[in-house]
Computed example of a mutant assay.
Amino acid sequence: MTFAGQGLMLHGELFRPDGPGRFPAVIALHGCAGLYGRHGDLAPRHADWAKRLVAEGHVVLFPDSFGSRGAGPQCKVQDRITRPAKERRDDAFAAKAYLQDREDVDPGAVSLLGWSNGGSAVLYTVGQKRPVQDGGPDFAKAIAFYPGCRLPLAHGDWHARIPLLILIGAADDWTPAKPCEELATQAQAVGEPVSIVVYPDAYHDFDHPNLTVHETADLAFTADGSGSAHTGTNPAARADAIRRVPAFLAN
Rank of each mutant, 00 (worst) to 15 (best):
D48F: 14
Y36G: 01
D138W: 00
A189I: 08
A97N: 07
A140M: 11
Y146N: 09
V122L: 04
A25L: 01
A92K: 04
K86E: 15
P44W: 05
D207Q: 01
S226T: 15
H58M: 09
Q186W: 00
F206N: 03
D91Y: 11
W115R: 04
P193Q: 06
Q186G: 11
L35S: 08
D218W: 01
Q128S: 14
D201L: 09
L151K: 14
E192D: 06
A142V: 10
G114W: 05
G127P: 06
G40S: 08
G57C: 11
Y98P: 01
P24L: 08
V60D: 02
S116P: 03
R238D: 03
G37T: 08
G108M: 03
A43G: 07
V110T: 12
G114H: 03
L183P: 02
P84H: 10
Y203M: 10
Q188C: 08
T233Y: 01
Y36M: 11
M1G: 04
E87K: 11
K76N: 14
R83F: 01
C32G: 14
G31W: 01
H58C: 14
H30E: 11
P179L: 06
I168A: 09
F3T: 09
G227W: 07
G19F: 10
A160I: 13
A239Y: 06
G57N: 06
A154L: 11
G40K: 11
K86Q: 14
C149D: 03
L8F: 12
D104S: 09
F248G: 03
G118Q: 05
F15M: 01
E181N: 01
E13W: 05
L153R: 08
H155F: 12
P147Y: 09
V77I: 14
V60L: 12
P137F: 08
L183W: 02
Y124M: 04
H159E: 13
G232V: 06
A95Y: 04
D104I: 11
C32D: 13
A95P: 07
S116Q: 05
A241T: 04
D18I: 06
W174G: 10
R22D: 10
D91L: 09
N117P: 00
E87Q: 15
A247E: 15
L167A: 13
L99Y: 03
P193M: 04
V194P: 02
Q133E: 15
L123K: 03
G7D: 10
R83W: 03
V126M: 04
F248K: 00
P63S: 01
L211P: 08
Q74S: 07
D106H: 00
A184T: 15
A85W: 13
V59R: 01
V190Q: 08
L164R: 05
G108T: 09
A237C: 07
R238Q: 15
P176S: 15
A229E: 07
T175H: 05
A4C: 00
Y146K: 10
P176Y: 02
A170Y: 01
L35G: 01
T175D: 11
A142F: 07
G34D: 13
D48E: 10
L61N: 06
A47E: 12
G156E: 02
H230K: 13
L164S: 05
L153W: 02
R89W: 00
A140L: 14
K51N: 09
L113E: 12
G136W: 02
T185F: 06
S228R: 15
A33P: 03
Y124K: 02
C180N: 09
L211G: 08
G31Q: 00
W115I: 04
A236S: 12
A47C: 05
A25N: 07
A4H: 02
